[in-house]
């Protein structure tokens, strides 16, 4: 299955290079064409590839770790928290003063949210406490973002930042890619080796420990990995929701519902989803291009509704 998914991702990547106001830009055969490819299309497609990959992977990790098929960075507030931290970095001037401030703030915000969620799962296990915690984190992050914007002296700030938060990978140049990519790659490397212990956790935390899982260090490792991935992704692209929910869902039955088995396929499906969605928003006949995050929410939220309705009996213990 992974081979086919890789082919799909490669095809969508090439399509993403080709599609836009200027189709097949390399066919222009002149400097302008190649400038479009290298300065606009390659950063955009590569960011889509990486961000989709880490969102899909984060969804799979969170679902395996929290033992819940509804866990997803956007739904449970991890992206929102990263977004808030990134907004703070913008408005404190840190982001302008120091180039790594933006991704670092995003990573810190995401890690805090993940840690809070793990606390909620530890104390009162179950879907309800997890999702309520997510609702709370989302609400707090949204309120704090509004507060920061209200305090801002710049009247254009509100529109600018809300567009940014809606999630987009338009006009991100190679500089953004260079800042965020290392964090996303390191985060992915940290969590990809944890598949065995995610498998063990499907029997619950006690049994996983009896099988040799060091749940405390695993928790730190996954918090760090998801924080790095989602934080870096959010700090360059805003909140792109539902990718982490849909990607593991599409392939879970194919891997026999084994959490560790969902990691790599889910990463590939996530990349395919974001590359595909980012290509579709370029083709939609809207006056200005639709935000990528808005599009994934439009498609993804009904998917969440369906997943919740089908959830009964889909997994054994809740």
């Amino acid at each position: 299955m992974n081979r086919w998914l890789l082919l799909l991702v490669a095809a969508l990547y090439l399509l993403s290079l080709a599609v836009g106001p200027a189709w097949w830009p390399w066919r222009l055969g002149n400097e302008v064409g190649w400038t479009i490819v290298w300065e606009l299309r390659v950063p955009r497609a590569t960011l889509g590839l990486l961000i989709g990959g880490v969102l899909g992977l984060s969804g799979a990790v969170l679902q395996g770790w929290l033992r819940n098929p509804l866990a997803e960075p956007g739904v449970i507030g991890v992206s929102a928290c990263a977004g808030f931290a990134a907004v703070c970095a913008f408005y404190s001037g840190l982001a302008a003063a120091f180039v790594l401030a933006l991704p670092l703030a995003g990573i810190a915000g995401a890690a805090i949210a993940v840690a809070l969620l793990m606390g909620a799962v530890r104390s009162g296990t179950g879907t309800v406490s997890l999702l309520l915690m997510g609702v709370a984190i989302n609400a707090i992050a949204a309120a704090l973002i509004s507060l920061v914007l209200a305090l801002s002296p710049n009247p254009f700030a509100y529109q600018e930042i809300s567009l940014w938060l809606a999630g987009s990978i338009v006009d991100r140049d190679l500089r953004y890619l260079a800042i965020a990519a290392p964090f996303m790659i390191v985060g992915a490397a940290i969590v990809l080796g944890a598949g065995r212990w995610l498998d063990a956790l499907s029997l619950g935390e006690d049994t996983a420990r009896s099988l040799g899982a060091d749940t405390r260090s695993l928790g730190l490792r996954l918090t760090l990995g998801v924080g790095l991935m989602v934080g870096a992704a959010t700090s360059v692209a805003g909140v792109i929701g539902f990718v982490g929910l849909i990607a593991p869902h599409l392939i879970r039955a194919r891997v026999g519902f084994r959490p560790g088995g969902t990691l790599v396929p889910s990463m590939l499906v996530g990349a395919a989803l974001v590359l595909g969605a980012d290509t579709v928003v370029r083709l939609l006949p809207t006056a200005s291009e639709l935000q990528l995050g808005v599009f994934t929410s439009l498609v993804g939220a009904p998917f969440l509704v369906r997943a919740v309705r089908k959830a009964h009996g889909a997994w054994l213990a809740t």
Partner: peptide, 9 residues
């Protein structure tokens, strides 16, 4: 009452 969270094979 050992159980699993996913419908594993």
């Amino acid at each position: 009452a050992a159980s699993a969270y996913w419908p594993l094979r």
